[in-house]
Structure formats: structure tokens, C-alpha cells
Amino acid sequence: MTSSPAVSSDIRPLLQQHEPPSIAELFRGFLMLGLTGFGGVLPLARRMMVEDRRWLSGQEFTDLLGLCQFLPGGNIINISVAVGLKFRGWAGAIASILGLIAAPTVIVVALGIVYDRYQDDPLLHHLFAGLAAAAAGLLISTAVKIAWPLRKRPLALIIAAMCTIAVGILKLPLLPTMLVFAPIGILATWKLKA
């Protein structure tokens, strides 16, 4: 007995996922994410949740990121709360966000104390320039991975490109841009599926 292609492609991402993470797994996952993702957690978050632990499919991550970018606050913080809520309710949300911010908070305070003492050192300025270049590379790589699930949806790619041009090139404010393009994207997607 064969199933239709639409059904099998909808089920395929679910078959690749593991069991829902426990509260402890959510805490440990986001703790490691917080410890390894200084200055650019989003690329590592996608890799952890989609590729390594398979908590979400690529499409689910892209959809969740779109929602979290529209909400106030940091994207990764919103994602950690949303993923925790999805799998383990409020306890999962709390475990996820505590895992994400606990160790980095301690490390940032310690580094702030060290930076205050050595801020005029030229070697430190070169170190930060190198870190900025690496972070930019990670961001570009993540943008490609996030856009990949949209490759078969040209309208979504057009809207994403228009948002990028509006905010990145024309320097329009993010919130008004999202308030214009989000309803257009929702309406267009709804019309195409109808």
C-alpha cells in the first residue's frame, strides 16, 4: 500500500526526529548552546535542534524563528522558551531559558572584569576584530540554512528578499517592516494553499 507523495513528505520529518526531550535534556542542550555560542548562538541553535538532536525539522525551525523574530526580545531567548513550552510546558520553558543564560551570565561578568583591566591592549582589539569576522561567517551560513526549506516556495523567498532589502539596505525600521510584510506573507501563503 502506497501513500500519496504529500503525505509521505509531511511524515518524513517526523520520522527523523527523536523522542521529545526531557526537562533535563532541554536544560543540558541549551546550557551547551549558551556555553558555545558567544556572539552568534543562532547558527549553533539550528544545528543543535535540527541536525544534531532532531528536536525540530528544518521547516519547523524556520517557522519558529520567523515567529520569534516578530516577538519582542532576543530571538534565541524566544526560541528557547518556545521549544521548552512545546515539549515540556512551563517547566520545559524555564529549564531551557535557565540553561541558555546561566553559565554565559557568569562568564560575561568575569570577562567584563578582565576587559575593564586590559581594555587598552591592542592585542585585545585584534582579537575582537577576528571574532567579529567569524561571527559574520556563521550568520551568513545560518541565513542560507534557514532559507533552504523555503527554496520550493518562491513567494516566501521574494518576501524574505524584500524584507532583507528594506531593513539591510534601505535601513527601514524592523518593526514597521515586519508589520507590512508579515501580513502580506500570511495572506499570500493562505491564498496559494486555498
Rank of each mutant, 00 (worst) to 15 (best):
G37I: 10
G39L: 06
L42A: 11
P43F: 00
R46V: 00
R47N: 05
R47F: 09
M48S: 12
M48K: 10
M49W: 02
V50I: 03
E51T: 10
R54I: 15
W55P: 05
W55S: 06
W55E: 02
L56R: 01
S57I: 06
E60N: 00
L65H: 10
L67Q: 11
C68L: 13
Q69D: 14
Q69V: 13
L71D: 11
P72V: 13
N75S: 08
N75Y: 00
N78D: 11
I79F: 05
V81C: 04
V81P: 03
V81Q: 04
A82N: 11
A82Q: 06
K86C: 04
R88Q: 11
W90E: 04
A91W: 13
A91G: 15
A91Y: 12
A95I: 09
A95G: 08
S96H: 12
L98I: 15
G99S: 05
L100K: 09
L100Q: 08
L100Y: 10
L100H: 10
I101V: 15
A103W: 09
P104R: 11
V106S: 05
I107G: 00
V108E: 07
V109K: 00
V109P: 01
L111C: 03
L111E: 07
G112Y: 01
I113D: 07
I113Q: 07
I113F: 11
V114I: 02
D116H: 12
Q119H: 11
L123P: 01
G130H: 12
A132I: 00
A134W: 03
A135H: 09
A135I: 05
L139C: 00
A143E: 02
A143F: 04
V144Y: 06
K145I: 05
A147K: 00
P149G: 01
K152N: 03
R153E: 01
P154S: 06
P154E: 07
A156E: 08
L157Y: 00
I159S: 07
C163N: 14
A166E: 10
A166R: 14
V167L: 01
G168E: 00
I169W: 10
L170P: 01
P173W: 12
L174S: 09
L174V: 07
L175A: 12
L175P: 05
P176N: 07
P176C: 06
P176T: 04
P176H: 07
T177K: 14
V180K: 13
V180I: 15
V180G: 11
